[in-house]
């Protein structure tokens, strides 16, 4: 009993999206969210389901260069967009951010880490030399209960330094 999300009329629209460098031509339900599209349709389970209300950042991905909560973006909106998820940070192996996270032991249980990485990647792509305060602010929407916040901040700053 109680409230469930209302149903969307079962209508599909065609979208052309680029995800991690691969082009997809898809028919998506208008009520499908980007998060579910990535996880269920494209098998990219790096983006996680947690609060589903834009508070925790576990679902963060990069859309057209900006970090967003994919749980609040409709898949149809992504038509023509360029999307990067954690799986696409590096073509092979790990990118500088991911390596830095390993070096600084920033990942504990790891569940929030894809979201943290995407927020960090979006930050460094536009601000390659952030201050500690700027890192904290850019990642403020990514909750971590293991609370590896100090290590995550260190890792982002170290990655910024390494690629300068």
């Amino acid at each position: 009993m109680g409230k469930s999300p209302g149903a969307w009329i079962a209508v599909t629209r065609h979208v052309e999206i680029q995800v991690n460098g691969a082009h997809w031509s898809l028919d998506v339900g208008t009520g499908t969210y980007l998060l579910e599209l990535l996880r269920d349709r494209l098998d990219l389970t790096g983006a996680k389901i947690c609060c589903l209300e834009g508070e925790c950042g576990a679902c963060s991905v990069i859309v057209d260069g900006k970090s967003v909560n994919s749980c609040l973006v409709l898949a149809v909106e992504a038509d023509g967009a360029v999307i990067t998820t954690v799986e696409g940070l590096a073509e092979n192996g790990l990118d500088s951010l991911q390596s830095s996270f390993l070096e600084k032991a920033a990942a504990q249980c790891g569940f929030c880490i894809p979201g943290q990485l995407m927020a960090a990647r979006a930050l460094l792509d536009t601000n390659p030399d952030p201050s500690e305060g700027e890192v904290r602010e850019a990642l403020a929407g990514n909750l971590c209960r293991c609370a590896g916040y100090p290590q995550i901040t260190d890792a982002v700053l170290a990655a910024a330094k390494a690629t300068r």
């Binding site: 834009g54 950042g57 900006k66 970090s67 967003v68 909560n69 609040l72 973006v73 979006a122 602010e137």
Partner: peptide, 9 residues
């Protein structure tokens, strides 16, 4: 307002 992810939208 919210987080960067929210503010981008």
């Amino acid at each position: 307002v919210g987080s960067v992810q929210i503010r981008n939208r």
